[in-house]
Design a binder for these strands. Structure first.
Lengths: 192, 192
DNA sequence: AAATTCAGCGAACGGCTGTTTACTGAATGA
DNA sequence: TCATTCAGTAAACAGCCGTTCGCTGAATTT
């Protein structure tokens, strides 16, 4: 799986060859079948590995009980740190989220749906129930999850194009402002 | 290009074969080289075709001088209609935006940057200049562009999973609410 | 009318692909 | 201790891949 992740840094899963993977590991092609049925099978395994670590990070941020701006700061920093530590994982997710392998796409979509559930239940107690019906909470959670993915890929491109930290700081500043803007909207939701 | 777009509906560009394209057209493999140097060359041509039509649509919506909610309605409807009309185009963009072919990724990023420029200049006259420095206008424009792409791919998945119009209406409702929330945040930007 | 560009042709090139087969030796468990 | 699972092997299979070559006929230009 590590070898595959490395190869997937500059190609997509649907063009990855089985032999290519075994060659990178230093193993006979047939040995692949001892571990995976398919390349798409390997793909869904990589989805679980890649989104598992992100999952822990998200929960940690969600558990913090700070105010709006502190939480935004913590979330953006956590995403930045995660991207710095596991760039290949999140590159894989960004690439295959709409990629050519159906099973992998569906695995990612299901996992991101679970993320949205958790964000929704984390935000629910903080929102006045009379102006936040469940479907509105859900739409807010989806906005947050999509924005997180968006921000993560922006960090990725920043560190790919420009190893220096300048571009990275610009991405962080933009992400913070966008989250602040969403927070403002959230506070004025349904108050005419 | 039409044949390639058709083949790319269920695979990504980096796994598309030159012979595969020529076979779909009914032409000898060597004929490909009369039109494109590479498959990535074909890719950037497809980017221009795909984002060109979207471009016109966006400008039409931006030119409309209605109020907030009317503009949101018009924008979401226009995106929905566009996805219905050119699903393969926008699927291609979603897939290759973070795909395995560098040149294509860069072409898409450059084009979306131009989109953000246009959104920024369209919104600029409506925003009080004292609370909206240029970089804040830019971050707003990027949020809108990313949300548009996000919404378009959501429509795509809705019509792929469920040919009926029910799922599609749900996506539209969510997108409208998210844009409304962003509008609220925009109106309360920097007013403590 | 002659010359030139153009798009396409068939054939060939070495090289890489996924998958199956039967076999091997080490680790594991009863 | 003996049987079984486990991970890996080499070899072979047919088939597809991108690319190059010289040639052809139509369209276009001069």
């Amino acid at each position: 799986m590590d070898a595959a992740l490395r190869l997937l840094e500059d190609q997509s899963l649907s063009s990855l060859g089985l032999r290519e993977v075994t060659r990178a590991v230093g193993v006979a092609p047939a040995a692949f079948y001892r571990h995976f049925r398919d390349l798409s099978d390997l793909g869904v395994a990589l989805v679980e590995e890649s989104l598992g670590s992100l999952h822990h990070m998200i929960n940690a941020v969600l558990a913090g009980q700070e105010g709006d701006e502190e939480r935004i700061e913590a979330a953006v920093d956590a995403v930045a740190e995660h991207v710095r530590r596991y760039p290949a994982h999140i590159r894989f997710i960004a690439r295959e989220r709409h990629g050519g392998v159906r099973a992998v796409r569906e695995a990612i979509a299901a996992e991101l749906d679970r993320f949205a559930d958790e964000v929704a239940t984390a935000f629910c107690p903080q929102l006045p129930a009379e102006s936040w019906p469940p479907e509105d909470v859900r739409m807010l959670a989806e906005l947050y999850v999509d924005h997180m993915v968006m921000t993560a890929t922006a960090f990725l491109e920043a560190q790919a194009d420009h190893p220096g930290a300048a571009e990275e700081r610009k991405v962080a500043a933009t992400a913070r402002k966008q989250l602040l803007l969403i927070s403002l909207g959230r506070h004025h939701w349904h108050d005419e």
